[in-house]
């Protein structure tokens, strides 16, 4: 109140900014704190990590951990498997979601509202709730310990979100575009592939990256269905590393940072679209 009358020094706008940053900066620091700890630990030597007192920033930074982790754990294999799962889930999910989203965006058919409600409803059921039912199914199909299983299940679990998001995209494209293409002798499917797909590439990219991140980050499914060391993705590989008797935290943090880097970079690329899509789906 007094400050308001002091000319020049403390304007109401400045007070507001101080208030904003005073609240925001602690939250932001906590948000990125694990990332800072991860990076800092990954450049420490094993002595610095294990001999007290602990340090916050590395005293003698070294990149040794980034060279060693590839030998200590089959990190290359983990990366490769995560990549296969991520890409496989993306392709499988898109193959299923694109036609469904197109049908929902363009047609008014009997049972459409039921299907839409179903899509909304199943978003609530993540792998963990169904894991025992899935376990019985996968075991009886003889699909245990196979990357294909993880790819298929990931695709199914991200299908509802992907269909929603693509449906929204397709609806923004005027139907006249396909009608014109069909006048030129294209079939309906041809018009869709040639005209609608290219126009909705921002949506397709966002959905593809979302599916990839889902696959890359998935924990419960590979934990349950994969056994062989050479099939494990990063999430499970790193988890196995942390359950060992003596955890080499400096190496683990180096590997964790590499695993994070991939998704965080991808995420930043499509951040706006993805959050808008997530928000739209949750609020519809």
């Amino acid at each position: 109140m007094i400050a308001k009358e002091t000319p020049g020094m403390l304007t109401p706008r400045m007070i507001k900014l101080v208030g904003i940053f005073g609240l925001l900066i602690p939250v932001l620091l906590i948000s990125i704190f694990p990332l800072i700890v991860m990076i800092s630990t990954s450049f420490k030597t094993s002595q610095e990590v294990y001999i007290p007192p602990p340090t916050f920033m590395p005293r003698a930074p070294t990149i040794q951990n980034y060279l060693d982790i590839w030998r200590v754990v089959p990190l290359g294999t983990y990366f490769w498997n995560s990549l296969l799962i991520g890409l496989g889930s993306t392709v499988a999910s898109l193959v299923l979601a694109i036609p469904a989203a197109y049908a929902l965006a363009r047609y008014r058919f009997v049972g459409k509202s039921v299907y839409v409600l179903f899509l909304l409803g199943i978003q609530m059921f993540p792998p963990i709730v169904l894991i025992l039912g899935l376990f019985r199914l996968i075991a009886s199909l003889n699909m245990l310990d196979s990357l294909v299983t993880i790819v298929v299940l990931n695709a199914i679990f991200s299908l509802s979100f992907n269909t929603w998001m693509l449906m929204g995209y397709f609806m923004t494209i005027p139907p006249e575009i396909e009608e014109a293409a069909m006048m030129d002798g294209n079939s309906r499917v041809g018009a869709m592939v040639r005209m609608v797909m290219p126009l909705s590439w921002p949506g397709l990219v966002a959905v593809a990256i979302f599916s990839f991140m889902n696959g890359w980050n998935e924990f419960t499914l590979p934990l349950t269905f994969l056994q062989s060391q050479d099939k494990l993705p990063l999430t499970i590989g790193l988890f196995k590393f942390v359950t060992r008797f003596k955890v080499e935290w400096h190496q683990l943090m180096a590997a964790s940072f590499l695993a994070t880097l991939v998704v965080v970079v991808l995420f930043m690329l499509v951040q706006d679209q993805l959050t808008r899509g997530m928000v739209a789906v949750s609020e519809k």
Partner: peptide, 29 residues
Amino acid sequence: KALLLIPWAMPYAVSAITWKWIFHGQMGS
């Protein structure tokens, strides 16, 4: 906004592992 969303973008498993390290009884930050 971008910094705020980092926790959401990080793989769940990696976040949990890192927090486990932060909460570590002897050497945690």
